[in-house]
Design a protein around this nucleic acid. Sequence first.
DNA 1: CGGGATCCTAGATGATACTG
DNA 2: CAGTATCATCTAGGATCCCG
Lengths: 128, 128
Amino acid sequence: MSFRGQTPLGAQQCTEALVAVGDALYVIGGKWKLRIIIALSEGHTRFNELQRRVEGISARVLSNELKDLELNNFVTRTVQTGSPVIVEYKLTDYSDTLQDVLRALQSWGAMHRKTIKERMRQEALATS
Amino acid sequence: MSFRGQTPLGAQQCTEALVAVGDALYVIGGKWKLRIIIALSEGHTRFNELQRRVEGISARVLSNELKDLELNNFVTRTVQTGSPVIVEYKLTDYSDTLQDVLRALQSWGAMHRKTIKERMRQEALATS
DNA sequence: CGGGATCCTAGATGATACTG
DNA sequence: CAGTATCATCTAGGATCCCG
């Protein structure tokens, strides 16, 4: 199940990978899903607080995404009646299964940023 | 750098994760990028062949995505003049850095599919 | 505070041709 | 074969207003 590393994938494994990754992207793909999950991993959070944490997201989109995440069992929504009403979102245990994915993405993202920076530095040197 | 697992993330780590994952998604996010990379991991491939492997993608989109992947150093494009002209796409070494991400996504996707299946089976039982 | 309802735009995608 | 061009579409997302 290795991705290259010199040896190409067989057609069969390739299709399998395509399907599995497709499944994954279907649920957690898109611009916001993973960001929201990360933001929620700071602890259970209320709506507006969450909106502040996830930079750039609008209330409508956040609301929709949260519903979706709830449907897919990544998030639970609890309402405490009173005034004001308090609505809290928190991650479920199932969302913990995403740890590897998140870790891999995070470390790749950090690595990639460094690479780009270095690449730009080199180009700057070459031009001067 | 763990994602929950009982203990919430600190605000600082949360922001770091948000940025890094954001960087990653910026480059490899979207509907097609990872699929194309997986398809290419079966070995170097020509355009139409690649389009067949990546189910559902149109020539125009594939063309655009490939340009993007080339710009980001994931793919190289080589042209062998002759008739017919042969254009081959292959993964670069840099695309190998995505292994962890791909593996994590694939195994999560496979796990998730099983979970869903099981969940549906349970619901079917409950209804009957 | 926690959203829902509406309206609207840009960009992503699909379908179908067409070309060197 | 390896795309490009054009048009039609679709939808995620932004902006704004509103409500209990």
